[in-house]
Amino acid sequence: MSDRFWQQAFAVARRDLDRERRAGEVTWVMIPFGAIALLLVPLAIGINQDVLSRIGTGMLFVVVLLFGVLTAVRRTSIETPEQRDLIALLGIDPAAEFTGKTMASAFLLLVFQIAMGAVALVLYGLDISGWAWMIVVMPLTAVGLAELGTVSASVAASTNAGPALVPLLVTPLAIPLLLAATQTVESVDREGGNLTWPVLMAVVVLVLAIVGVATARPLQETR
């Protein structure tokens, strides 16, 4: 990867984060919406502290997955045909564009996960003995989910059903991330940590990066 590649990737990531900073979709919509979802669970199943602390980590990652998908379809990540023409003519490497978009989404997803983690910790009284693993699990979840979101959003770009379709495309494919994230954190209680799951996540992240870079060119062609 040349300097030019990373220069373009960082420019795209910076553009996306700048746009998001002005629009505030993650801060003002996704985080409150996710927090309400976490609040709804005890209301629906009853306030039994044992049950809540047992299912809390799982609920946290369900919310991260279902609501985190929305970062891929946030309004400021969607480009008009004119914007896509421009960026193509500027001579962008499609793989750099994929990388940049993924970096921006991953950063936003990490912020989202930290916020959701804090809310879940407070609401569910979680046992945090396994949470040291979060330092590994959260970034891997963020990158994996961002990769799936970026590919799916490009695939569904400028169709009327795009924003509704992307969650359907991403969610089933993100199941390894969900399972690995919850199992890593919970396995600490049983066996004091298990590297299998983080390794699986890392493999998923790597494979998706390869697929995303390889398919970036055909997806960039506007017609």
Partner: peptide, 28 residues
């Protein structure tokens, strides 16, 4: 042509990603 190109990408990503899905669910 747009449909063909985009669904081809999804057809590839989908199957590739089903491999870790398979392992994760089996281990789980």
């Amino acid at each position: 042509e747009a449909r063909a190109r985009r669904s081809a990408v999804l057809g590839i990503v989908g199957l590739v990603q089903l491999i870790p899905v398979h392992f994760s669910v089996t281990w789980w």
